[in-house]
């Protein structure tokens, strides 16, 4: 009984940690611009696919990973510079559609370059599953959890200890006031895109050994990440992390104890519950509208 419960819990936490990282990416960009970046999932895809293809070219794994993350970071900056910045006068909905266009475009290019097939990425460490209390975990799961925790800690430090981080926070709270005190909001926005691309690609690389990777893996992970962000209140970093982990655990528990047919439906009804009863999200920030 306990073994079963632990099994569902571990499964949920692993996949939940990935959702949390994607949700953090959404949150970063949403805070800086109120744009829901539908290309977020593509950062994960780029991370995984670039690593696999660089390794295929004979590069050792750590180098391939670093290059893939850099590539994703460049892509994030390019997305903001080439697609979002030129349309800065546009409404938020228009910007959202631009990110949808960008995600389709990136996927289209990836399909041309890397083909449509799924690819295997080796685990970072051993392939032996880890056994804890009768439950079994993929050894890569430990890596996923480790990387997710480190990234979260780094983000917290970044936002509370560095000037740039504080500038991003200030911009997200009040764009005009931030500009008045001399923060270049476009630069902040670019940083937000870059950061969320970096986080996204690292998440994509970390889970690729568990999930395989392909040109269209970003669609599903991106969507689940958005759901997690929505559960957390879309704009709260803590909410994104808790939302992601909760979503993962709910999915696994529903599949294990109730019905695998409706595990996703249960996850989605949680959004409704949160909206109905905790409209600011579980950790949503209070927003005061100015007249």
């Amino acid at each position: 009984m306990l073994a079963e419960f632990l099994q569902y819990l571990f499964t949920g936490i692993t996949i939940g940690a990935t959702y949390a990282l994607v949700a953090l990416g959404f949150t970063l960009i949403y805070n800086a611009s109120h744009v829901i970046n539908f290309a977020q999932g593509e950062f994960l895809m780029i991370g995984g696919m670039a690593t696999v293809s660089l390794m295929g070219m004979g590069l050792p794994m750590p180098i391939a990973i670093i290059l893939a993350v850099i590539l994703a970071g460049i892509l994030g900056v390019a997305l903001q510079r080439l697609a979002i910045a030129p349309a800065r006068q546009a409404s938020v909905v228009t910007l959202i559609i631009i990110t949808i266009g960008a995600s389709i475009f990136i996927r289209g290019v990836a399909q041309l370059v890397w083909g449509k097939e799924y690819h295997v990425m080796p685990s970072f460490g051993s392939d032996q599953p880890v056994r804890i209390g009768g439950a079994v975990m993929h050894s890569q799961s430990i890596w996923v959890l480790l990387i997710a925790s480190i990234l979260v800690v780094l983000l917290v430090l970044f936002f509370t200890r560095t000037l740039i981080g504080k500038a991003i926070l200030a911009t997200s709270m009040n764009k005009d006031a931030a500009r008045l005190v001399g923060i270049r909001t476009q630069l902040v926005l670019m940083l937000a895109f870059m950061l969320s691309a970096l986080i996204g690609s690292m998440a994509g690389i970390a889970v690729a050994p568990i999930t395989f990777t392909s040109y269209d893996i970003g669609i599903m992970l991106g969507l689940k990440g958005f759901v997690a962000a929505a559960m957390g209140g879309l704009g709260s970093g803590v909410g994104a992390v808790v939302g992601g982990i909760t979503l993962g655990i709910v999915e696994a528990m529903t599949a294990g104890y109730i019905s695998s047919d409706y595990k996703d439906a249960v996850a989605f009804s949680m959004i409704l519950l949160v909206l109905f009863f905790m409209p600011r999200g579980m950790f949503g920030s209070r927003v005061v509208e100015r007249v």
Partner: peptide
């Protein structure tokens, strides 16, 4: 497009 089926298999 699920990525983990251990719950169902358990």
């Amino acid at each position: 497009s699920d990525t983990d089926m251990t719950a169902q298999l358990t």
